[in-house]
Structures are given as C-alpha cells and as structure tokens.
Design a protein around this nucleic acid. Sequence first.
DNA 1: CTGAAAGCGCTTACAG
DNA 2: CTGAAAGCGCTTACAG
Lengths: 340, 340
Amino acid sequence: MSQTKMITTKRVTSHEVAQQAGVSQSTVSRVFSRDTRLSKTTSERVMRVAGELGYKPNAIARSLSTQRTQIIGVVASYMTNPFFPVVLEAFTQRLHELGWRVLLFTAGKSNDVDVLLPDVLAYQVDGLIIVTATLSSQMTREVLQRGIPVVLFNRYAPGSGASAVSCANDEGGRMVADELVRAGHTRFAYITGRPDTSTNVDRQKGFLERLAELKVTDCLIEPGDFTYEAGFAAAQRLLTSSRPPDAIFCANDITALGALDAARKLKVSVPNELSVIGFDDIPMGQWAAYDLTTVRQPLEDMIEASIELLLERVENTDLASVLQFLPGTLVRRGSARLSP
Amino acid sequence: MSQTKMITTKRVTSHEVAQQAGVSQSTVSRVFSRDTRLSKTTSERVMRVAGELGYKPNAIARSLSTQRTQIIGVVASYMTNPFFPVVLEAFTQRLHELGWRVLLFTAGKSNDVDVLLPDVLAYQVDGLIIVTATLSSQMTREVLQRGIPVVLFNRYAPGSGASAVSCANDEGGRMVADELVRAGHTRFAYITGRPDTSTNVDRQKGFLERLAELKVTDCLIEPGDFTYEAGFAAAQRLLTSSRPPDAIFCANDITALGALDAARKLKVSVPNELSVIGFDDIPMGQWAAYDLTTVRQPLEDMIEASIELLLERVENTDLASVLQFLPGTLVRRGSARLSP
DNA sequence: CTGAAAGCGCTTACAG
DNA sequence: CTGAAAGCGCTTACAG
C-alpha cells in the first residue's frame, strides 16, 4: 500500500538519487562504491533515497568506467556427461559468491571455441575458464595478449600460456592398475575417451605404464569417446571376444556405466567375473544399479584452485601461467573386486 | 612471422582505428554497426585497418550507448537432474546463434532467486529466463516494472505477469492413465515431485482425474522430490507394502529410474509384474539398463517458443504475458506393459 | 568530507 | 556519404 506506485519503466540513475537526496552525483557514486571518507549521515540519507527510488548502480556503466566488468567467461559443453553440469553449477555458484558474474558460452558440434571467442572478447570479460573443448594455441595467445587470463579446467596445454587445473590423471591410472593387479586380475582392458584429450591420454598412459611396471602385458585397448554408448559398445566387443578381460578400466564414469550395462546384458557377473572401474565419481555412479568403483576427482579443490589461479591473474596480468594437478582418490564400491 | 608483433595489452578502440584509417571515429562506428549509407571504399579500408589492429567493438560501451546489452539472464539450477543441463545448453546455443549472450545464475540451496535478482538486474539484462526455481510474484512484478520481460520455463505463475512455456503436464498425466488402464493395470501409484511445483501438481492432477474418469480409485500417492533417491525409496515402500501396485507413474524420469532400480533390487519383474512410466525423456532413459517408457517433453519447441516469447517482449514491452502449453508425446519403451 | 569535471568507448541525431 | 558533438551512467583524480 505504498504511496509511490512506480509504474514508470524508466530506470533510475545516480543523478536522480543525487537530486532527491540533495547531494552531488559523485557522492551517490561514492556511497555505492563503499568509499570510506563519507559522513554517516550523508551516506544513510543517500541509501534511504536510493531504496525508495529502487536505485541500483548500473554495472555496465561501472564496467566502462573502471575497465573491469567483473564478468568471467565460461565455455562449457558436453552437458550430456553429468560431470560437466556439476562443474558448471559449482563454478557459477562460487564465482557469484565472490562477486563475479558468469557469461556462459557453449561450444556445440558446429561452433568451435575459436569461433566463439570474438563474442566472448567483445563483452570484455575479465577472465576466461574453459571447461570443455580446447582453445587453439593461437587463440589462447590472442586472448592472453589482450590481458585476459585463461584457465583450462580438466585439461591442459603446456606452452600455450594458459593456466590449467586438472586431476592427476596419470597417477589415477596408475592407482587403478595397482589395485587391479593386487586383487589378482590378469586380463586387462582400457576403454578410451576421445583420443585427443589430455584427460584420456594421461589416464591411459598411467594405467599402461603401471601395468608394464608390474609385468603385465595383457591389456586390450578399445576405442571410446567418453559416452555411455561408446562404453556399452566397447565392453560388448571386449566381452564377446575370444579372450574377454576380467578387468576393465574406463576413461570416465559414463563410459563405465555403459560397460556395466553391457556386462549385465551379456550376463557377465560383476564383480565376480569382471571388475569395472571408472573415473570422475559422478552422482550416478552411486546408484544402486551401478555402485561404481571409480577414481574421484577432487572437484571442490579443483574448482577452488581454478578460480584462485584465474583471479590472481586478473589482478596481476604479469603472473606466469601455472599447471596444477590435484590427486584423485579411489572410491571403492561394488563394481570391482579389490583387495581391502 | 608477421611483422607487427603485438605485445601490448592495451585494447584497441575505434579512435585508433579511425586515426589509422584516416576517418572519423563515427565512421568506424558506422562500419561496425552495418550502417548502409557508407561508401564501399571507406568501409573496406576501415575493415582492413581494424583487422590489422585486431579491433573489436566494445560491447559494454555499445550497451551503455544503446541501452541494450543483448544479454539474457538465465537462472538455472538442479543440475543433477539431467533434464536441466540439456535445457541450459540448448538455450545458450540458440540464444547465441540469434546474437544474444547468456549471463548465468544458479539458485543454490541457500540463495533464493529473489536474492540473486539485484545482481541480475545490475547488469541490465534485456530479458530473463527462469529455468528452475520460482520467482516470488513480488519480484516478478519488480522486474517487469523495469521493463525486463520474464519467461518461466517448465513452470508457470498465472497473474504474475511473467510469460511461461510448459509442457501440457496435465494432458501428459491423463495420457499415462489412459494407457495404463487400457493395458489392464489395476493397482496404481504416483510418486510425486516437489509438491510446490506446477509441474508436479499438473502431472498428478491429470493422472488422478483421468483415473477417476475411468472409474479407477485404487491409486496410492507416494511423496518424492524429483530425485533418483526419492524415487528409489518411494518405490521400495510401495513394492514392499501389503498391496503393491502393478503400475507406477513417476513425476519425472530421474524418479522413475530410481523406481526401476528399486524394483530390480526387490526382484520385481519389469514390465511383467510392474510397469513404470516417467516424464521428460532424458537421455538416460534410453540406456539399456532402464529402457524407460516416458512422456517426452517437446524440448526443442519449448525452447524455441520461450525464446520467441521473450524476444518479442524485449522488442515490445507492452505485449501482454502469455502462457503456452505444448503437448508431450508418449515414448513406448520396455519399462511398461502397454497395449500397442 | 564533498563537488565539478574529465573520461571510459561506443551510438546517433544533426548538419553539411 | 561523413564529421563534430552530445550523451549513455558510472568512477575517480583534483580541488577545496
């Protein structure tokens, strides 16, 4: 039942607040930028008037003036892999808490990240987080040249100048090899992710290297692409081959879920006849139908680290790029027969 | 091996391009805003110089000047329900194609959408899409008052002034009732979603109403919350009760997957002893382990309609709000015993 | 503690 | 077809 029904669509500016409050526009601005040297009375009066008028400082104007948008560009895709939505949500949430906004871009089948970039840059983002897809190193250079720091999440590109935070994928692969061998498995297989990703390369490399160190040479490599369907198909091929594996390590969880369903379909008993291990620890791995043993990525820490690296470099463009690898942990569930 | 190694971090402005090209800054601006009345030669020269200098118009400055940011605020949450990431990705992709940017906000457990809103507004978004969570009607009014149109996706709030696009959830519920009765089921159950959502209310209402019309009164209502875990628990309760249902309709797919896993655990044979039907048609429903019969939401059309409603109202703030309901379609898979 | 004024990088009537 | 200039709504040295 307020007296002042605002039907007007016109947006309130600091000038109007200033006029109503009987101060200069600069003062209004200072009130909202928390300038310290303000008398309490002025400050309170301005705040009151601003409240009545429904005034909010225009962030776009502020951005232009300060040369800082407080916007972070986030490029994310592959939302069908449950890992990424969780990552995206966490990034958005955390950045927002810290006072930053997220401009979201998705790199689809057709539009490469490189194609997206001019649009990202036009909005003067203060920093860039790439959650999926890779930036060509030339593009990375171009972005960095403009003083916009870049952090790659869950992938890395040494020498590109971009910082990166990733799980220690090779170690994770080694850990899995260790555990599977120790539990007495003898015939191994690895279902790959997309072969051009550091994630896949490192997991595979760590796994195979450790197997080799343990004198195991019997490991089939079956191509996949980080999807359920590919995992299902690959496992089906493996399990119907002349010499099926008794342990399958999958490039990621969603692939492992596909592999488990293939085993179920073929009536291969898990974990008695077959152990399946994934990588990520997505929520679905905990579902009763799967109970997936996996390498958990330290998501919270990775996100925290990414944001820290990025914001440091927003503050100080001269900082050198950093690659950071955080160790994963094995989560023992029912899909693999492991020693305790 | 280009001669002009740009090490500078300073951003190029239209003034510099103008100077290099020997024209006024206005002309440079016109070239990039595709002003028609420009001589081809000037235009080309400016473009060439701009290219050499790596000039991109500053969208923030443009926004301030035009009073249009070309930014759409999107509020999305519940990324653990696979339905939403897909929606978010589609929205982002499509809006980008149409020349709009997406500022992403997530409403977490703690931060209500209402709390987020001042930050959304500060960035002068031209429109707002709410994919999850509901805006209080007071907040909706406030946003609309500022001339910012709002579209609710997959929920609606009549009288709030916000437009909305939703699946025809009641019809969907009716359709499921029809099919289940026709196939001879006799003991029904509905596992709910969160009770305060229009989505849940309408699906439940349609289902029960149609059952009543068909003279079926035997329908248990078991509370859930749109999650796998709730679906699992609810189905477990139902199936271990004294008079277990032979057909369960679930408020959404992820709930249905939980129900299916509960059935599997309890060795209830699907679809022989039990039919389970979901709502959404998320990718996982197609997985071999589930093969879920469900009501498919016409996602593409819903997104297209949402964007159209929104952009129309960005152009013309006076347009009245509209509620739009698009029919879902039954997707017959293996989790329900239905007549052909 | 506060104000007047320049400036951020564009767009766009207004002239010519 | 093009330029000079005002203006978008802020911030922030510079004075006082």
